[in-house]
């Protein structure tokens, strides 16, 4: 990679971070608007959604973080064969440092033993990179900033389970509903679920987060999983947990389910909860590292 390409790449990644932190993707904005119309006037739920809506506009207009917890920084990157992923990673780290100085990101990387904050979001495991090669000739970068409040309420269940049931779709459905019940207002609702049926403990959680890269208005290619998504939405929204756990009709804005093969002995259901402040943006880059297209 030439020096000028690296400079351009850093500028593109800084812009991706700025937009991800401050500008909620269109599909999520639409879902928040739709939710607003279904809450009773004057209710706490309607109040919460009004404040959320106002906050979304203010963050976009001021280029400031939608939420102060700018979260775990997760890059999902597809690159052509032969692309230098090491330079990409080094450049992204510089972009993260710059974004932290500018206040697009909070100082969010803490040594787990000493408690010392690195001050620039860089440290072991931060940021996170998931690289994939593909046969296409361009780079696709998707960034998620996942806040701690919503990450804390993720859950993984092993079936069979005494309360949730066996290794079938009913057991899976119950596991997801149990996660909704446990999350209550702690992950800022209305939330969005990414779910993986199967995999091992690590790949299950990882794939559940990958589901969150789908737009809220897409349709699952797998009919059975699509039907499960619909059932979860219907039942969770009848729970009355509502926005922020204040009570109301909107507990979830979306549910996206995928599956991975498992070994015969294991059956995990892994659930990643994303808050309404669903910070996800993506770009494709041209050969010079400039932004070609925004993906959400």
């Amino acid at each position: 990679m030439s020096t000028s390409t690296a400079v351009s790449l850093q500028a593109s990644l800084l812009e991706l971070i700025r937009k991800t932190s401050s500008d909620l993707p269109k599909d999520v904005v639409n879902a928040v608007q739709a939710a607003k119309s279904t809450e009773e006037d004057g209710s706490n739920a309607a109040y919460a959604l009004d404040v959320i809506s106002c906050n979304v506009d203010m963050a976009r207009d001021a280029s400031q973080p939608i939420c102060q917890d700018t979260g775990t920084i997760i890059f999902n990157v597809h690159t052509p064969v032969g692309y230098d992923q090491i330079i990409f990673e080094e450049t992204a780290i510089e972009a993260v440092k710059e974004a932290t100085e500018k206040g697009y990101l909070r100082q969010n990387s803490v040594d787990s033993v000493t408690g010392k904050n690195s001050g620039n979001n860089i440290g072991p495991g931060s940021p996170i990179f998931h690289f994939h090669q593909w046969r296409k000739d361009y780079v696709d970068v998707r960034l998620m900033l996942k806040g701690g409040g919503c990450e804390n309420v993720g859950a993984q269940f092993s079936l069979p389970h005494p309360k949730l049931g066996g290794r079938d779709m009913k057991g899976v459905e119950n596991a997801i509903l149990e996660a909704v019940l446990l999350a209550q207002g702690k992950g800022c609702g209305p939330g969005i679920l990414g779910v993986c049926i199967g995999g091992d403990r690590a790949s299950g959680y990882s794939f559940s987060k990958e589901q969150l890269l789908r737009t809220l208005d897409d349709t699952n290619k797998d009919e059975e999983l699509g039907a499960l998504e619909e059932r979860i939405m219907e039942k969770a929204n009848k729970s009355g947990i509502g926005p922020m756990g204040f009570g109301g009709n909107n507990t979830l804005l979306g549910c996206k389910v995928g599956k991975q093969n498992r070994v015969p002995a294991s059956f995990y259901v892994s659930i990643s909860y994303m808050c309404w402040a669903f910070r996800r943006q993506g770009v494709t880059l041209d050969a010079e590292g400039a932004i070609n297209e925004w993906l959400y």
């Binding site: 906050n55 203010m58 400031q64 973080p65 939608i66 806040g147 204040f246 808050c275």
Partner: peptide, 13 residues
């Protein structure tokens, strides 16, 4: 007192 979670700009304002 419950503030609206995630509404960091409304609060900062």
């Amino acid at each position: 007192f419950h503030a609206i979670g995630g509404a960091a700009q409304v609060c900062a304002d």
